[in-house]
Protein backbone atom coordinates (compact mmCIF):
# COMPACT_ATOMS: atom_id res chain seq x y z
CA UNK A 1 0.00 0.00 0.00
CA UNK A 2 1.38 3.43 -0.92
CA UNK A 3 2.03 6.06 1.74
CA UNK A 4 -1.13 7.82 2.84
CA UNK A 5 -1.98 11.09 1.15
CA UNK A 6 -3.55 12.34 4.36
CA UNK A 7 -2.43 10.96 7.68
CA UNK A 8 -3.61 12.23 11.04
CA UNK A 9 -2.08 10.89 14.23
CA UNK A 10 -3.09 11.54 17.82
CA UNK A 11 -4.64 14.82 16.89
CA UNK A 12 -6.51 16.89 19.42
CA UNK A 13 -8.22 20.16 18.86
CA UNK A 14 -10.44 22.39 20.92
CA UNK A 15 -11.92 25.77 20.21
CA UNK A 16 -10.49 28.74 22.05
CA UNK A 17 -12.85 28.97 25.01
CA UNK A 18 -14.01 25.37 25.19
CA UNK A 19 -13.07 23.01 28.00
CA UNK A 20 -13.66 19.83 25.99
CA UNK A 21 -11.84 18.67 22.93
CA UNK A 22 -13.85 19.11 19.78
CA UNK A 23 -11.73 16.52 17.98
CA UNK A 24 -9.68 13.64 19.32
CA UNK A 25 -8.40 11.44 16.49
CA UNK A 26 -5.86 8.69 17.16
CA UNK A 27 -5.46 7.78 13.49
CA UNK A 28 -7.04 8.85 10.25
CA UNK A 29 -5.70 7.99 6.79
CA UNK A 30 -6.76 8.70 3.24
CA UNK A 31 -4.84 7.27 0.31
CA UNK A 32 -4.18 8.85 -3.05
CA UNK A 33 -7.04 8.51 -5.50
CA UNK A 34 -9.46 7.39 -2.81
CA UNK A 35 -12.95 8.72 -2.60
CA UNK A 36 -13.79 8.89 1.07
CA UNK A 37 -17.14 9.63 2.64
CA UNK A 38 -16.91 11.08 6.13
CA UNK A 39 -20.14 10.88 8.03
CA UNK A 40 -20.97 12.58 11.28
CA UNK A 41 -23.95 14.18 12.96
CA UNK A 42 -24.26 17.90 12.96
CA UNK A 43 -21.88 19.46 15.45
CA UNK A 44 -19.59 16.45 15.56
CA UNK A 45 -16.67 18.49 14.31
CA UNK A 46 -16.61 17.67 10.60
CA UNK A 47 -16.08 21.24 9.47
CA UNK A 48 -13.51 21.69 12.20
CA UNK A 49 -11.56 18.73 10.86
CA UNK A 50 -11.63 20.20 7.36
CA UNK A 51 -10.34 23.49 8.75
CA UNK A 52 -7.44 21.58 10.26
CA UNK A 53 -6.76 19.80 6.98
CA UNK A 54 -6.83 23.17 5.22
CA UNK A 55 -4.23 24.52 7.61
CA UNK A 56 -6.59 27.25 8.75
CA UNK A 57 -6.83 25.78 12.24
CA UNK A 58 -3.95 24.39 14.23
CA UNK A 59 -4.27 21.32 16.47
CA UNK A 60 -3.30 21.45 20.09
CA UNK A 61 -1.21 18.34 19.64
CA UNK A 62 -0.73 15.53 17.17
CA UNK A 63 0.47 15.22 13.61
CA UNK A 64 -1.20 16.30 10.42
CA UNK A 65 0.54 14.85 7.41
CA UNK A 66 -0.55 15.92 3.93
CA UNK A 67 1.24 15.04 0.69
CA UNK A 68 4.46 14.47 2.57
CA UNK A 69 4.31 17.78 4.41
CA UNK A 70 3.81 18.01 8.13
CA UNK A 71 1.26 20.85 8.36
CA UNK A 72 1.88 21.48 12.04
CA UNK A 73 5.51 22.26 11.26
CA UNK A 74 4.71 24.87 8.64
CA UNK A 75 4.45 28.54 9.32
CA UNK A 76 0.99 30.12 8.83
CA UNK A 77 1.90 31.66 5.46
CA UNK A 78 3.29 28.36 4.23
CA UNK A 79 0.11 26.58 5.32
CA UNK A 80 -1.96 29.11 3.37
CA UNK A 81 0.29 28.53 0.39
CA UNK A 82 -0.05 24.78 0.79
CA UNK A 83 -3.83 25.00 0.86
CA UNK A 84 -3.87 27.21 -2.22
CA UNK A 85 -1.62 24.84 -4.14
CA UNK A 86 -2.97 21.44 -3.15
CA UNK A 87 -6.49 21.60 -1.75
CA UNK A 88 -9.77 22.51 -3.42
CA UNK A 89 -12.61 23.39 -1.07
CA UNK A 90 -16.31 23.15 -1.64
CA UNK A 91 -18.80 24.32 0.98
CA UNK A 92 -22.41 23.90 1.92
CA UNK A 93 -23.87 27.18 0.76
CA UNK A 94 -22.93 30.58 -0.61
CA UNK A 95 -19.77 29.33 -2.18
CA UNK A 96 -19.46 32.19 -4.62
CA UNK A 97 -18.33 35.76 -4.40
CA UNK A 98 -21.36 37.77 -5.46
CA UNK A 99 -19.56 40.56 -7.29
CA UNK A 100 -17.39 38.33 -9.45
CA UNK A 101 -18.47 36.71 -12.70
CA UNK A 102 -18.90 32.94 -12.95
CA UNK A 103 -15.52 32.57 -14.64
CA UNK A 104 -13.76 34.86 -12.17
CA UNK A 105 -15.21 32.83 -9.33
CA UNK A 106 -13.78 29.68 -10.84
CA UNK A 107 -10.42 31.35 -11.50
CA UNK A 108 -10.19 32.52 -7.89
CA UNK A 109 -8.25 29.32 -7.13
CA UNK A 110 -5.64 30.25 -9.72
CA UNK A 111 -5.25 33.80 -8.42
CA UNK A 112 -3.75 32.66 -5.17
CA UNK A 113 -1.70 29.77 -6.54
CA UNK A 114 0.78 29.98 -9.38
CA UNK A 115 0.97 26.20 -9.31
CA UNK A 116 -2.72 25.73 -9.99
CA UNK A 117 -2.62 28.42 -12.64
CA UNK A 118 0.22 26.60 -14.35
CA UNK A 119 -1.65 23.30 -14.16
CA UNK A 120 -4.88 24.83 -15.41
CA UNK A 121 -3.10 26.17 -18.48
CA UNK A 122 -0.80 23.20 -19.01
CA UNK A 123 -2.91 21.91 -21.89
CA UNK A 124 -2.38 25.20 -23.73
CA UNK A 125 -5.71 26.63 -22.68
CA UNK A 126 -6.07 30.15 -21.39
CA UNK A 127 -7.24 30.15 -17.75
CA UNK A 128 -10.67 31.38 -18.81
CA UNK A 129 -10.94 28.67 -21.48
CA UNK A 130 -10.08 26.06 -18.88
CA UNK A 131 -12.75 27.48 -16.60
CA UNK A 132 -15.27 27.27 -19.43
CA UNK A 133 -14.22 23.71 -20.17
CA UNK A 134 -14.66 22.63 -16.57
CA UNK A 135 -17.99 24.38 -16.23
CA UNK A 136 -19.29 22.70 -19.37
CA UNK A 137 -17.97 19.38 -18.10
CA UNK A 138 -19.93 19.98 -14.91
CA UNK A 139 -23.05 20.33 -17.00
CA UNK A 140 -23.27 24.09 -16.80
CA UNK A 141 -24.52 25.37 -20.13
CA UNK A 142 -22.25 27.95 -21.82
CA UNK A 143 -25.09 30.48 -21.75
CA UNK A 144 -24.90 30.43 -17.95
CA UNK A 145 -21.19 31.23 -17.82
CA UNK A 146 -21.81 34.91 -18.42
CA UNK A 147 -24.63 35.19 -15.95
CA UNK A 148 -24.29 37.03 -12.65
CA UNK A 149 -23.60 34.42 -9.98
CA UNK A 150 -26.42 35.69 -7.82
CA UNK A 151 -28.84 34.82 -10.63
CA UNK A 152 -27.86 31.16 -10.73
CA UNK A 153 -29.87 28.49 -8.93
CA UNK A 154 -28.31 26.88 -5.87
CA UNK A 155 -27.52 23.73 -7.87
CA UNK A 156 -25.83 25.79 -10.57
CA UNK A 157 -23.91 27.75 -7.94
CA UNK A 158 -22.63 24.53 -6.41
CA UNK A 159 -21.38 23.37 -9.79
CA UNK A 160 -19.51 26.65 -10.25
CA UNK A 161 -18.02 26.11 -6.80
CA UNK A 162 -17.05 22.57 -7.80
CA UNK A 163 -15.28 23.94 -10.86
CA UNK A 164 -13.38 26.31 -8.58
CA UNK A 165 -12.36 23.44 -6.31
CA UNK A 166 -11.25 21.34 -9.28
CA UNK A 167 -9.46 23.82 -11.51
CA UNK A 168 -5.70 23.37 -11.61
CA UNK A 169 -6.07 19.74 -10.47
CA UNK A 170 -5.41 19.99 -6.74
CA UNK A 171 -4.33 16.69 -5.14
CA UNK A 172 -7.13 16.89 -2.60
CA UNK A 173 -10.70 18.04 -3.00
CA UNK A 174 -12.56 18.58 0.24
CA UNK A 175 -16.33 18.93 0.08
CA UNK A 176 -18.21 20.06 3.20
CA UNK A 177 -21.86 19.08 2.76
CA UNK A 178 -22.08 20.67 -0.68
CA UNK A 179 -25.35 18.95 -1.48
CA UNK A 180 -27.38 19.75 1.61
CA UNK A 181 -29.26 22.55 -0.13
CA UNK A 182 -30.15 20.40 -3.13
CA UNK A 183 -33.15 18.13 -3.54
CA UNK A 184 -32.55 14.37 -3.45
CA UNK A 185 -32.47 13.89 -7.20
CA UNK A 186 -29.97 16.66 -7.77
CA UNK A 187 -27.84 15.50 -4.87
CA UNK A 188 -27.16 12.23 -6.62
CA UNK A 189 -26.49 13.86 -9.97
CA UNK A 190 -24.15 16.39 -8.39
CA UNK A 191 -22.25 13.70 -6.49
CA UNK A 192 -21.74 11.73 -9.66
CA UNK A 193 -20.42 14.76 -11.51
CA UNK A 194 -18.09 15.57 -8.66
CA UNK A 195 -16.72 12.04 -8.41
CA UNK A 196 -16.24 11.83 -12.15
CA UNK A 197 -14.35 15.08 -12.27
CA UNK A 198 -12.15 14.08 -9.35
CA UNK A 199 -11.33 10.86 -11.20
CA UNK A 200 -10.58 12.80 -14.35
CA UNK A 201 -8.21 15.20 -12.62
CA UNK A 202 -6.78 12.52 -10.35
CA UNK A 203 -7.84 14.32 -7.20
CA UNK A 204 -8.48 12.52 -3.98
CA UNK A 205 -11.96 13.32 -2.70
CA UNK A 206 -12.90 13.74 0.92
CA UNK A 207 -16.64 14.20 1.11
CA UNK A 208 -18.31 15.19 4.34
CA UNK A 209 -22.00 14.88 5.14
CA UNK A 210 -24.42 14.10 7.90
CA UNK A 211 -26.60 12.19 5.44
CA UNK A 212 -25.41 8.61 5.45
CA UNK A 213 -27.49 7.65 2.44
CA UNK A 214 -25.20 9.68 0.17
CA UNK A 215 -22.34 7.28 0.92
CA UNK A 216 -23.09 4.95 -1.98
CA UNK A 217 -20.51 5.20 -4.69
CA UNK A 218 -17.64 6.07 -2.37
CA UNK A 219 -14.64 3.80 -1.90
CA UNK A 220 -14.67 4.08 1.85
CA UNK A 221 -16.91 5.40 4.59
CA UNK A 222 -15.76 6.80 7.92
CA UNK A 223 -17.74 8.11 10.84
CA UNK A 224 -17.03 10.94 13.16
CA UNK A 225 -18.84 10.48 16.46
CA UNK A 226 -19.78 13.33 18.70
CA UNK A 227 -16.71 13.89 20.76
CA UNK A 228 -14.59 13.74 17.68
CA UNK A 229 -13.38 10.17 17.28
CA UNK A 230 -13.17 8.63 13.80
CA UNK A 231 -14.24 5.08 13.23
CA UNK A 232 -14.51 2.98 10.14
CA UNK A 233 -18.10 3.13 9.02
CA UNK A 234 -17.80 0.02 6.89
CA UNK A 235 -17.22 -0.12 3.16
CA UNK A 236 -20.01 1.11 0.99
Amino acid sequence: MPAALIRIENLRFRWADDADFCLDIPLFEVHAGERVFLHGPSGSGKSTLLGLLGGVLVPECGRLHLLGSELTQLRPAARDRFRADHVGFLFQLFNLIPYLSVVDNVLLSCRFSARRLARATAAGNSPAAEAHRLLTQLDLNASLHARQVTRLSVGQQQRVAAARALIGQPEIVIADEPTSALDAERQVAFLELLRDECDRSGSTLLFVSHERRLATGFDRQLSLTTGGAVSAGGSA
Binding site: G54, A84, F91
Partner: peptide
Amino acid sequence: RRELAILRSVGARP
Protein backbone atom coordinates in the same frame (compact mmCIF):
# COMPACT_ATOMS: atom_id res chain seq x y z
CA ARG B 1 -17.71 36.97 6.40
CA ARG B 2 -18.75 34.28 3.95
CA GLU B 3 -16.75 36.01 1.25
CA LEU B 4 -13.69 36.24 3.48
CA ALA B 5 -13.95 32.51 4.27
CA ILE B 6 -14.11 31.69 0.55
CA LEU B 7 -11.02 33.77 -0.11
CA ARG B 8 -9.36 32.08 2.80
CA SER B 9 -10.24 28.64 1.41
CA VAL B 10 -8.57 29.38 -1.93
CA GLY B 11 -5.41 30.38 -0.11
CA ALA B 12 -5.73 34.03 0.93
CA ARG B 13 -3.65 34.87 3.98
CA PRO B 14 -5.27 36.80 6.84
